[in-house]
């Protein structure tokens, strides 16, 4: 299964994004919510299984996105090891899927770097300082 994934990924990596059909991002936003994609990916596609920006390989092209979605559906709709739900064509058409893709592409995430995030920096400094006592 894994190898098959990889092969398909490689094949479709070849296909340029130029081939994108160009979905409707606005419609995609509605579908993303209605089909509860947010339930794992987060409302802004930044969470547990992130899709925003370059977080996920499946966002490389529309084709790849579609292929992944259908592969999941056709190969093994019941697979407890894969928590991605099955969205068969009968449930979510290619057109709708492409709208979702367009919506996801329209999102971006611009979190501060670690060094520019005072909260995270304070945590890291505290952890580093903790070691000081151990050196004695």
């Amino acid at each position: 299964m894994k190898t098959l994934h990889l092969i398909l990924v490689l094949i479709f990596m070849q296909q340029a994004r130029a081939q994108d059909l160009g979905g409707n991002a606005e419609e995609g936003e509605r579908l993303y919510y209605d089909f509860a994609c947010y339930s794992c990916h987060g409302y802004n596609a930044t969470m547990r299984v992130p899709l925003v920006g370059d977080a996920s390989g499946i966002m490389n092209s529309e084709q790849l996105f579609l292929t992944y979605l259908r592969l999941r559906a056709d190969q093994n709709p019941v697979n407890p090891k894969n928590s991605m739900p099955n969205y068969a064509v009968s449930t979510l058409s290619d057109e709708q899927a492409v709208d979702i893709y367009a919506y996801l592409r329209s999102l971006n995430d611009d979190p501060p770097e670690l060094a520019d995030n005072p909260v995270m920096q304070e945590m890291l400094d505290a952890a580093k300082a903790r070691g000081k006592g151990n050196e004695k």
Binding site: G42, Y43, T46, P111, P112, N117, M120
Partner: peptide
């Protein structure tokens, strides 16, 4: 922390 930067400003 690197892994958790994502969505920091999100709502």
């Amino acid at each position: 922390l690197e892994d958790r930067r994502r969505g920091w400003h999100g709502s």
